[in-house]
Design a protein around this nucleic acid. Structure first.
Length: 607
DNA sequence: TAGGGGACTTGACGGTACCCAT
DNA sequence: ATGGGTACCGTCAAGTCCCCTA
C-alpha cells in the first residue's frame, strides 16, 4: 500500500540527510530553533516564476459592441478575455460578478473605449469564448510527442524554479509561480467576485533570501520591489494582492523538512491537550454556572468547540468577504432551541455558513445547563445580534493559553479529529478482516472525522453514472450467484444418484465457485456502501491536516497518506514506528507500537 | 483594547496522471 | 489499446492566531 512518502519529497530523503549531517558534525536544524520562530542560516532560490505575458488575439477573433466589431486596446482586450473565458461559468450570470467586472474593466480602458463601452449587455464575447474553447480542444488533441515536449518544458521550469536551498538542503517549493491575472472568484456570496485581479510584476515582489546567497535575478528590464534577509520567517518571496490587500507568499512544499516539523509540532500540542482535556472539561462545565456572563459565554462556546469541532470564528470586516461565521461569531439567527425534538431533550439546531460558505447543519442534544445558558444569551436579542456578545477569539484564546501552554481553539479540532480516527479504527477494525474490509473500516473511521469537521464536497459529476455501473455489476454478480447455486444443486443431485468420485469432485468444485462468487458479491456491495456513504464527504482535508499520521501508520491501516511525507513529519532522527512518539492516547512513556491503540476509549469525547 | 498587518494553516475545487477492467 | 474512474496535486481563497500601534 502506498504511503505517499516518495512522491513529492525532493531527494535526498530526510533520514539520510540527518545521518549525513551527524557524521559531518553539523547540528540538527531543530537545535537552532527558538520557540518563537524559524532561524535559518542559508536560503537561496531563483525567485518566482512569472505568469506568461498576454498574447493578443488573432485579428479574426473579434469583440463586438452593440452588434458591431470593435478593436480593443491590448490591455482592454486582455481583461475582456478573462470574462470571455468564463462565459459558460455560473459566475458570469451573477449581477455582483458582472458589475464588479464591468466597473474594473472600464477603469482600465482608454478614454475612447470608455466613451463607447457603457453597457455590459451590449458586449459580445462569444467569438473570443469560442476561440479559447477551440484552443483548449486543440491542446487536448495534440499528438503524443507534442504533449511530451510540453511536459518536458514544464519539468525544466519546475527543475529550475521549483526548488530552493535551505541550510544546505535542496527543498521543494510549494507554489513557485506568481498567480496569473484574472477575475477574482470568491466563494459563496462574495461581494468582490468579478473584480480584476492584477498581474504581478517583479516590481511588486519582495525577495527573501540570505545575505551571502546569490540574489535571484529579476526578469530583464525589471527590478524587485525589495530584497531582504529575514530569517525569522519561512517565505521566499511575497507580494500584496489587490483584491483584499493581503500578502501572498511563496513558501515550501508540505514535504519539506521545515513544514514537516511544524506539522509534527502541531500534533505534539494536540497530544499535550490529551493530558489536560479532562481537567479543562470539568473547568468549563463548572463555568456554566458562573456569576459572570463572560465566563458563561466562554464556557459554552468552548463546549461547542470541543464537542462539535467548530472553528474559532474570528470577526470579519463586513462587506469585504462572504458572510460566514465560526463559534465565537455565531449570531442568534444561527441556532434554534428545541426543549424537545424527536424524543430528545434540549436540542440545539445549528444552521450557518462556515468557512468557504459551506453550510453547517446539525441538531445536537446538549446538557441542560448549556441549553439554559443559550436561552439566557438569546434573551432580548435580535436575530442579527451576536450570540456570544461578551466573547471573541482573542478572549477565548487568552483563556486557553492560561490552561495550557500553546493551547488555542484550533487545537481542539486537531485533537478531536485525531482521537476520533484512533477510536474509530479501534472499534471498526478486526485484525482478521481481509484488505477490502479493512479499507472500508479505515474509510469509515476517516469519514467519521470528516463528518465531525464538516468537510463536505460537491457530489462528483460522474457519481450517478459510476454508481449505476457498480449496481449493474452487482446485479450481474447476483445472477451469476443464482446460476452457481443451481449448478451446485444439480451436482449434488448427481452425486446422490451416482455416488462416484467424479461427481463428488464436481460438487466440491461447484462449492468453491459459489464461495468465490459470494465473496466477490460481498466485495462489490462493500464498495457500493463505501461509495454511497462518501457521496458528499471529503476525506482529503482531514487526512492532510487533522489526522496524526502516526495513528494510521501504527494501526497498520496502511491507508493513503496524502501529499505530506510521513517521515518528514517527524524530527527525522526519530525512527517512525519503533520508538518514536506515540499517537494521542499514548502519552509518554510510549508503549511499543503494537500497543499504541489499546488505550481506553473513554473520556476522549466530551461528555 | 480595538484595529490592522503579517505569517502561516486549512479548505474546496479542477485538471491530470495513472490504474484497471474491457 | 482504450476509456472510464479515481487518487493525487496544484491553485488560490479563506480561515486562525500573533504581534504591533495608537
Amino acid at each position: 500500500m502506498p504511503t505517499g512518502s516518495s512522491s513529492t519529497r525532493s531527494p535526498p530523503c530526510p533520514g539520510l540527510v540527518v545521518s549525513q549531517m551527524k557524521q559531518q558534525g553539523i547540528d540538527d536544524l531543530s537545535n537552532e530553533k527558538t520557540d518563537d520562530g524559524v532561524k535559518w542560516k542559508q536560503l537561496e532560490h531563483k525567485g518566482p516564476y512569472f505568469a506568461p505575458l498576454y498574447e493578443p488575439l488573432p485579428d479574426d477573433v473579434k469583440f463586438y459592441y452593440d452588434g458591431k466589431p470593435m478593436k480593443l486596446n491590448v490591455a482592454t482586450e486582455e481583461i475582456a478575455t478573462f470574462y470571455a473565458k468564463m462565459l459558460d461559468h455560473e459566475y458570469t450570470t451573477k449581477e455582483i460578478f458582472q458589475n464588479n467586472f464591468f466597473y474594473d474593466w472600464r477603469k482600465e480602458m482608454t478614454s475612447e473605449e470608455r466613451k463607447k463601452i457603457k453597457h455590459l449587455e451590449k458586449c459580445d464575447f462569444k467569438e473570443m469564448h469560442k476561440y479559447f474553447v477551440d484552443k483548449n480542444e486543440a491542446r487536448k488533441a495534440l499528438p503524443k510527442e507534442e504533449k511530451q515536449k510540453l511536459k518536458e518544458e514544464a519539468d525544466k521550469i519546475q527543475e529550475e524554479y521549483g526548488y530552493c536551498i535551505l541550510d544546505g538542503h535542496r527543498e521543494k517549493i510549494g507554489n513557485f509561480k506568481t498567480e496569473p491575472p484574472g477575475l477574482f472568484r470568491g466563494r459563496g456570496d462574495h461581494p468582490k467576485m468579478g473584480m480584476l485581479k492584477k498581474r504581478i510584476m517583479p516590481e511588486d515582489v519582495i525577495i527573501n533570501c540570505s545575505k551571502d546567497s546569490q540574489t535571484p535575478e529579476p526578469p530583464s528590464g525589471h527590478k524587485w520591489k525589495e530584497v531582504r534577509c529575514d530569517n525569522t520567517v519561512t517565505w521566499l518571496a511575497s507580494w500584496t494582492e489587490n483584491i483584499q490587500n493581503s500578502i501572498k507568499y511563496i513558501m515550501l512544499n508540505p514535504s519539506s523538512k521545515l513544514k514537516g516539523e511544524k506539522d509534527w509540532q502541531k500534533y505534539e500540542v494536540a497530544r499535550r491537550l490529551k493530558g489536560v482535556v479532562n481537567k479543562i472539561r470539568s473547568q468549563y462545565r463548572a463555568d456554566w454556572k458562573s456569576r459572570e456572563m463572560k465566563k458563561r459565554q466562554r464556557s459554552v462556546a468552548l463546549y461547542f468547540i470541543d464537542k462539535l469541532a467548530l472553528r474559532a470564528g474570528n470577526e470579519k470586516e463586513e462587506g469585504e468577504t462572504a458572510d460566514t461565521v465560526g463559534c465565537c461569531s455565531l449570531r442568534v439567527e444561527h441556532i434554534k432551541l428545541h426543549p424537545e425534538l424527536d424524543g430528545q431533550e434540549h436540542v440545539v439546531e445549528f444552521d450557518f455558513l462556515g468557512k468557504d460558505s459551506i453550510r453547517y447543519y446539525n441538531k445536537v442534544p446538549v446538557e441542560k445547563p448549556v441549553f439554559k445558558n443559550l436561552q439566557l444569551f438569546m434573551e432580548n436579542k435580535d436575530p442579527g445580534d451576536d450570540l456570544f456578545d461578551r466573547l471573541n477569539t482573542t478572549v477565548l484564546n487568552k483563556h486557553l493559553q492560561d490552561l495550557m501552554d500553546g493551547l488555542t481553539a484550533k487545537v481542539f479540532r486537531t485533537y478531536n479529529a485525531s482521537i476520533t480516527l484512533q477510536e474509530q479504527l479501534k472499534a471498526l477494525t478486526d485484525a482478521e478482516d481481509n484488505v477490502a474490509a479493512k479499507l472500508l473500516s479505515y474509510n469509515r473511521a476517516n469519514r467519521a472525522v470528516a463528518i465531525l469537521c464538516n468537510h463536505q464536497r460537491a457530489t462528483p459529476k460522474s457519481f450517478e453514472k459510476s454508481m449505476q455501473n457498480l449496481q449493474a455489476k452487482i446485479d450481474a454478480k447476483k445472477e451469476q450467484l443464482g446460476e452457481a447455486q443451481m449448478e451446485l444443486k444439480r451436482a449434488k443431485a448427481d452425486l446422490k444418484a451416482k455416488k462416484d468420485v467424479k461427481s463428488k469432485a464436481a460438487v466440491e468444485k461447484k462449492k468453491k465457485l459459489l464461495e468465490k462468487i459470494q465473496e466477490q458479491l460481498l466485495k462489490l456491495n462493500v464498495q457500493a456502501t463505501d461509495k454511497e456513504e462518501n457521496k458528499q464527504i471529503a476525506l482529503g482535508t482531514s487526512k492532510l491536516n487533522y489526522l496524526d499520521p502516526r495513528i494510521s501508520v501504527c494501526s497498520g491501516a496502511g491507508a493513503p497518506m496524502g501529499k505530506k511525507t510521513v517521515s518528514a513529519q517527524h524530527p527525522p532522527a526519530a525512527p517512525l514506528i519503533s520508538s518514536s512518539p506515540a499517537p494521542l492516547t499514548a502519552l509518554p512513556p510510549s508503549p511499543p507500537a503494537d500497543q499504541l491503540l489499546l488505550l481506553p476509549p473513554s473520556a476522549s469525547r466530551p461528555p
